[in-house]
Write a protein that binds this DNA or RNA. Sequence first.
RNA 1: GCCCAUGUAGUCCAACGGUAGAGACAGAGGACUUAAAAUCCUUCCAGUACCAGUUCGAAUCUGGUCAUGGGCACCA
Length: 852
Amino acid sequence: MNTASPKYTPAQIEPKWQNSWFATNVFRAEADPSKPKYYVLEMLPYPSGQLHMGHVRNYTLGDVLARYKRAQGFNVMHPMGWDAFGLPAENAAIKRKVHPKEWTLNNIAEMKRTMQQFGWSYDWSKEVASCLPEYYGPQQALFLSLYEKGLVYRKETFVNWDPIDQTVLANEQVVDGKGWRSGAPVERRSMPQWMLKITQYTDELLADLDKLPNWPERVRTMQANWIGKSRGLQFSFTVQKGTATLPDKLEVFTTRPDTLYGATFCAVAPEHPLATAAASDDPQARSFIAEASTLGTAQETIDKAEKKGYKTPFVALHPLTGQPLPIYIANFVLSTYGTGALMAVPAHDERDHEFATKYTLPIVPVIQSEQPLPYTGDGAHINSPLFNGQNIAEASATVIAKAESEGWGKGVTQYRLRDWGISRQRYWGCPIPFIHCEKCGVVPVPRESLPLVLPDDVDITGTGNPLDTHPTWKHTTCPTCNGAAVRETDTMDTFMDSSWYYMRYLCPQSAQPLDKSALDYWMPAGGGVDQYIGGIEHAVLHLLYSRFFTKALRDSGIVSCTEPFSALLCQGMVIGNSYQKADGTYLYPSQVEQRDGTWIEKATGEAITVHPAEKISKSKNNGDAPDALVAKYGADTLRLYMLFTAPPERDLEWSETAIEGAWRFLNRVWNLAEKAATLHGEGTEATEATDRALNRKIHQTIRKVTSDIERFQYNTMVAACMELTNALQAAEGQASARLVREGIETLLRLLNPAVPHITEELWHMLGHTTPLHASSWPTYNPDAARDDEITLIVQVDGKLRARVVLPADVSEADALAAAHAAEDAQPWLQGKTIAKQVYVPGRLVNIATVSV
RNA sequence: GCCCAUGUAGUCCAACGGUAGAGACAGAGGACUUAAAAUCCUUCCAGUACCAGUUCGAAUCUGGUCAUGGGCACCA
């Protein structure tokens, strides 16, 4: 009887269900105090126009959790938006003569269209795009709140100037001395910058890392390192030139005050006032300083062995011995850390040692050691009249106490974390709402005239700042005196945009920047986003800034919670081998195959080079585009593949054949359920035992899938569902049709968060009128899940010798007796004296014998 | 150089300190088919990178080595 059963056709069923979900807003989330809330958040994408596999993985992980929590009865917030300001839009404007706004909005539309093909359960009514005035207007208002809190200031400062992007970068955006986006070596320039006082929260940002147990350890470590807290002594040297004593002292910071007697020279940064003073009448010093700054950090990093110094005419008087120490300008001294000057102890510091060796300066050991110098370990101090024999901790305390009592120094704590420079001399960003008036100085834009909107009619050429060169935009009147004034033309770092978007999601239409009642429901005191998911690349910057923002807004009374993200999951990258032909072009994985141990192009047989797995990218062709794969297999197959192939934190290696496996599994589920829907319990006579076994499997699977989802073990969750599928297939004709059908329905409910379209379709096909997304999560019956009998392992001296099958509720005595009686164990027990017996209920008996 | 993670069948991955194999990919054989694809059935394959230790018992814990990946790297 061939009933021409309908085949699994994702191209038809997926759009159908997506339409039904989004037409009726089933994922709409509104505050409801009668229900427990759960806020699932994935990092918002930059709208490049192209969705890539990393996004697909990220959003699928979040969607499983969101759908699961919804089924568990939580009121789930699961929003999505766009990190839509930034340089690529301007680069596109320069290259392709398209306006940044048009380019960005088109990209958003395109990406959103692609994203909707995946059936992710977003409440799209919460969508925000940071480039729209509805978003950046409120951001300007928040910026004014921070200003009122004293957290915003302006500072003339050396900044990292990116010569390609023609913009200023934050320290954090300089990677190995190069711009994090352009890759160009960074230069140093001095200009007035808008700063955010993140350092006011340094201690809290560090201490509260302990309140984040559900963050990956390594992320917390990275943040702690970034904050870089260190304790030491800050003290001053009297400075002389010849015999004349200078009015200003030389302030230095050291984490090793115990080595003070070993200090044989001092070094200052090229930007230090003393360096400037030395350069005033010395052209050589001037050229040394110029060289040190133009070299930039990039050169230094590449050529880090090259420590260079220039001797100044100044000397510093040692505070304990009165000895004059020469002062050098040194290229390795950072002006931004500590005081920009240091005391050098070549015997116990590697850099100082290298420098002293190069310039033949004295090296005085002050710690007893057999090790070659420089020795950085602990030990008894020598050559240190005040504290000979003490260790580092004791000696440090002695020096600090003496310095403080005599008033030439004090114990201080230094941090590596600097204030956050947010000024960008760019067009495509949030305008900073301030006005420069000659009479009144820097004046905030009145809140009632926000949003301060970007002008559309700009000419983007790639040089300079379009806001500055715009004919009219910056000219305005001073809100205080009504005189002629000009607007600030800097825009904000895009990390500002992503520092609070997770709050605006909760009230995207609010007239206030943030609606406290919505925030207090979704992000109450003591709990923020319940689960945040994103890439490890944001471990420091975005996450640290967001934590700072949350704390600052808390202190302004705008939010109640103190940490934005209660739990964090950093997913691994999606990587793949790349295949390169001799002419340098890259082939897709589907175009190559391995034959007799070598890789060749299928079409031509030409040999190709295989590069090891790296991040999937368009230029390397090492992975197909997500929408092409959706067209080929459907979203559910791609989702399942992403979940099944590797655990979330691990890198996921691209494999076309593994996708085929996911596709096949879904077809098996389809065929199984489809058959159950057409056969109406025409019965086989099932035995009680087979039914009980199948029922047990069903309940064990519910238990396993539930706990796997809770632990983000999505790969084993899928495996458990595959097992149940196998069991159900095998049970056809063996177990009762009613139970098989129940098993299939359970399977669909368990798989629904992972593959929502096919499960919804089959659920419907089985005659259910309540859709799966509105159904509750299955619960298991512990009695049904319990095994009747167990296989007990019998070990003798730790080695497996026999196994015995016993009732699950066997007593220890019976289990031991059975173990001793086991035939296979006999040869190993003959004539042995038993020393110890270990019984692990349900698992094993281990009989340890006395060795002769 | 420092810190962290990872290392299990040909491949991707499982395994509260307790039977190394749940699941999948690939391979082999078979069934169905005129044939192929699809589907279904059966099946081969490692002893957990290496060395030592703790333990009745180690893939799992500890120490060391190696490899891969990532982060930090003149922070005084």
